[in-house]
Structure formats: C-alpha cells, structure tokens
Amino acid sequence: MSGRMTDVAIVGGGLAGGLIALALHRAHPELRLQLIERGPVLGGNHRWSWFSSDLSPEGEALLAPFRKVDWDNGYDVAFPARRRTLAAGYRSLASADFDSGLKRLLPPDTIRLDAPVATLDAGGVTLESGERIAARAVIDCRDFVPSPHLSGGWQVFMGRHLKLGEAHGISRPVIMDAKVEQLAPAGNGAAYRFVYILPLAAQEIFVEDTYYADGSALDRGLLSARLDQYAASHGWSEGVPAGIETGVLPVITGGDFTAYLASVGTPGVALAGARGGFSHPLTSYTLPIAVENALAIAAQGDLAGTEMARFCKQRAQAHWRKTGIYRALGRMLFQAAKPERRVDIFERFYGLPEGLVERFYACHSTLPDRLRILIGKPPVSIPRAIRALAGKGKPLA
C-alpha cells in the first residue's frame, strides 16, 4: 500500500459490500477502495436468487459479468390446495462465483481478506492486527445484528447441492413446495415449512428445507435428516453432496427502526446491507435491494463520510416506510395464523395476479397491490388478524 488515504473503506465482503465496491469502481474508477472481509473468501457460503423482473437495466448490467444459472421458462409453487406455474424468469448466483467474479473485476489491491476489524469510525478502520486504514468514507456492511428494538420471527434453512447419477427431469425452479408435512424444527415452536428446488444442471440439483419459525435454533442433524427423506422420496438418495448451505435470517414484522439504527450504528459511518435494514422484511431476499442500493451509493461516490452516512440512513428509513405492508403480512403469519395453518397465508397469496407477485418480491408493491393483498376472504379469523396487526410481536433478540 502506498500510504495514500483510502477514499471509501467497505467493511464486510458479503453481497452488499461486494456490490457496492463493484458499483463504485465502475462509476468512479479513480477512487481508491478497500473491501475488507474477515473471512478467507468474499460472499461466504451462500446462494442468492432473484426473479428476472426484479432488476432495472442498470442492475442487470451490474450483475452481467458474474457466472450464474438462468431459467427463462418460469417457476412452480405447490401447496396442499393449489399448484401454479408463473412465467417470470429466475436467476441464481453462488457465492463461489461471486467471489471469483469480484476478484476478476476489482483492482487487486482493493480486496483485503482474512482481515477482521477491531473498530471503525468516521475516519477509518482499525484491524485486529493493529493496522489502521484511514478513509474519507466508511460503509459498514457487516451482518445483521439481532436486536430487541425489532420484532418478528426467523427463516431457518439448510440447503444441499446434489450431483446425481442420472437426470432428475425437473426443468424449472420450485420456489415453494409446501405440500410437505408442516413440521417445526426442534426447539423453535411453530413454523411454516416448504422445500425449495433449483435444477442447476441435468444431473445437478439444489434442495433446501426452509422454515418460517418462531425461534432461531438451527438443528443441523434434524434438517439434514429431513433433506435425506425428501431426496429419497424423489429418487435422489444416491446423489453425491457437492455443497451445503445453512442460515438463520430475520423475518422483521415491526419495531422501532430509528432505535435499531442508533444501537448498531457508529457516528459518521454509513450503514448498508442487512445490518442497515436493506432486506425484504418477509422473504429476507436481499439481492434486488442490494443492487439498487449499490447503484444509488455509486451515484453519490464523491460524498464525504458524514454525508454518505446521512444518505444511507435516509435510504434506510425510506425503505422501512415503503415495506410496511410486508411487515404487516409477517405479523399475520407469526401472530394471526394458527401454527398448523400458516401455510394458508402463502397459498392464498399465490392465487393473486402474477404481476402483483413479481412486484411483491422486488419490494415495488403499488397501492392497488397492497389493497388487493389485504381485501377478500382472509386465511385467518378477523379477530386474530386485528390483534396481530395491532400487536408488537416477539423481539428479535
């Protein structure tokens, strides 16, 4: 390193941090960036997916250089009383391809791996090694922090990439197979359960067992056994595991967002990614929102640190306001639906017009969309729905 001050230091090399670094480099190649990641790779061990209708042309261009899997023949959902094929294309990006793509696209001296951070402030970042990285602006993109200021439940999952000895015969993704038994993961109370399937190649498939659960416990043995059972029921039990992914994500249904930001923020440091509130409150999808945010930050790349922090906070607050409908649906799911009937919430939702469904996932629901979601015969009793909408929910702590 030359000793020249870094223009923008980005702490956290996950999806949000990596995309911000790439967008800034594309828009301002003269900027000196530092993408600081505590682990040995960028992106961790994840698979991010999105619908073809989620991104703007600019967003598509940002992701175009990455290797990914595309499906343009729609996707399926399956429930006890409904099965439907929707037309939107679907995309999926593995973290290994995200890592290799960023290493190819960013200048070599931009990426700092195995660099855990001790402290950060408006003037830069101090690593645990004692090294100080002075920066004009600092953006904190580290993981979400559970907080008593927010309420909701959890999305708990385990996914397995299988290589099969013969073709599986599935031609398009299955976003939700909720015909499975509605079991809760051990220790987590009630849950809405579904299986998510991505046909990655003719003889490769990704299968994920997912729960919208009251608790955040991840029982690896139990979820692995349920994946074994599901694979066996489809004739995939001889498949060779090529990778595994687990996760526990927040499903935010309410809270005091201003207090949350104050509790996790640092004066003069911008907050982005899930820690900054940039996720879909109900689905926990992050990619379309991360892309939008990266492009918006890149358009403001010349801002000083305090101005960048203020800009990101304003965007976070605007995102919180516009996603209120999704938090309301989350309260219906966790607080109004009887535990064994949570599946009814999503089964009813997938009977709505296809354009509404697409805008829902992209966090672009219109006022008519919101009214359409709420009117009609509800899948829960009216008194339970009223209590849920008025309630605070369980703290995400």
Rank of each mutant, 00 (worst) to 15 (best):
P29H: 10
A27T: 07
I345G: 02
M158T: 06
D228G: 09
G265W: 04
V77R: 02
E60Q: 14
A23D: 05
M332N: 00
I325F: 12
I373G: 02
P148M: 01
Y260W: 11
R83F: 11
L218H: 13
G187D: 08
P379Q: 12
P57W: 07
A217M: 05
W50L: 13
A61K: 12
Y350E: 06
S100G: 07
E166Y: 06
I325C: 05
P29M: 07
A328H: 03
V125A: 08
P339Q: 09
L396Y: 05
F311W: 12
Y260S: 07
G351W: 00
V8M: 09
I133E: 00
P108N: 09
G165V: 06
P368N: 11
R82M: 13
I10P: 02
Y260N: 09
G18K: 01
L218Q: 04
Y212C: 04
Y260M: 10
A262S: 14
R226I: 00
L62C: 10
R172T: 12
S129V: 09
Y192P: 01
T286R: 04
A232L: 13
A137Y: 01
L271T: 07
W48S: 01
L162H: 03
V264F: 13
R83E: 14
L367R: 14
L287T: 09
G255T: 07
L374P: 01
G268C: 07
G247E: 07
V174G: 08
Y75K: 08
I205P: 00
Y196P: 06
L55M: 11
D256G: 08
L333Q: 10
S147Q: 11
S92Y: 05
P379Y: 09
K313V: 01
R321Q: 15
V269E: 02
A167K: 15
D302E: 15
R26M: 04
M1I: 03
E204G: 13
D121C: 14
P353E: 10
Q182V: 03
E37Y: 02
S56E: 10
E340W: 06
A27M: 08
A23F: 07
L31M: 13
A309L: 06
T85L: 04
P80C: 10
G123A: 14
Q314H: 12
P379L: 09
D54I: 09
K103D: 05
G215Q: 11
A202H: 13
Q155L: 15
A201E: 14
Y212G: 01
P80T: 11
I111F: 04
